[in-house]
Amino acid sequence: MSKIMLEVNGLTTKYITRYNESVYAVNDVSFQVEEGKSVGIAGESGCGKSTLALSLMGYYFPPLHYTKGDIIIDGRNISGMDPDDVRKNILGTEIAYIPQAAMNALNPTRKVIRFIEDVIWAHDPKISKKDIHDLARERFETLNLPEDTLNKYPVELSGGMKQRTVISISTILSPKVLIADEPSSALDVTSQKMVIKMIHDLMELGYIKSMIFITHELPLLYNVTDDIMVMYAGQIVERGSADQMIFDPIHPYSKGLMGSILVPEDGTRDVKITAIPGTPPNLKKPPDGCRFAERCQYVKSQCRVQNMELAGLGNGRTSRCMMSEEELREAYKNE
């Protein structure tokens, strides 16, 4: 059993709207990520994927508020810490975050090397400029980025290059956990592959110890991560290895998601893609019982009453459903 890098226990965060209503976008989420492993998070839009990513950083700004739960990075609990403390000691060194439109974060009037100086000096102002330049040059070389990128302005770089530059800047302090929130969704397929290759290299070279990768593109997730978690209405509904989740999902919601995969491969054309009918529940007033009950084909009367916990299925798989694995498999077979 390898070391656990990130442990999340019962994390709950909420948005407070201007009418003072609470929207629990992340509700009682618990999971662990081991050293050297990557976990993907999948789900529809609005199911809380990005909010979970933001919450994991331990740095909250309105309208997002921390409610309860623990975030433990390599044995150190960061939940409930002072925001300035988090900013100084956690972000960048323990946990790094790449947002969706990361490439727009670069100030067009400053050269790339200036951002790297900023990041390093924010944590340790005593490091000399030369050391920073050496570190940056070495890091860029190992990641196959041209060295002259450092002395360029962001506008001189293409979209894919910008994204790769941002990733290398945010991981320059070798964080223990990298949270990538759709890092490649704005790019075309070729640059996407290069970005993913770079993230893969970062993991291989040990610059980052573990990763959480968020996307709604399931074939991509299959290629990147070890494990896949499926989120629905602020809760995790199923977790398993990438192979298990793509080819053999157990929870009815995961099953529905996997029905919408489109890949250019022989034989996939004859399989009709399916969508899950209906829309996710309003999180201001989440329904009692199973949150997916409203849209589930296999719903029983009990589902609407009894709250379900994530239950282990063996092999490291967990699922949040009333029906047992055998019952669900039987139901899928009869379709």
């Binding site: 592959k193 991509l220 290629n223 793509i246 890949v263 250019p264 491969e265």
Partner: peptide
């Protein structure tokens, strides 16, 4: 360059 599920 397209991510696939049968030939990763």
């Amino acid at each position: 360059d397209v991510p696939k599920i049968h030939e990763p």
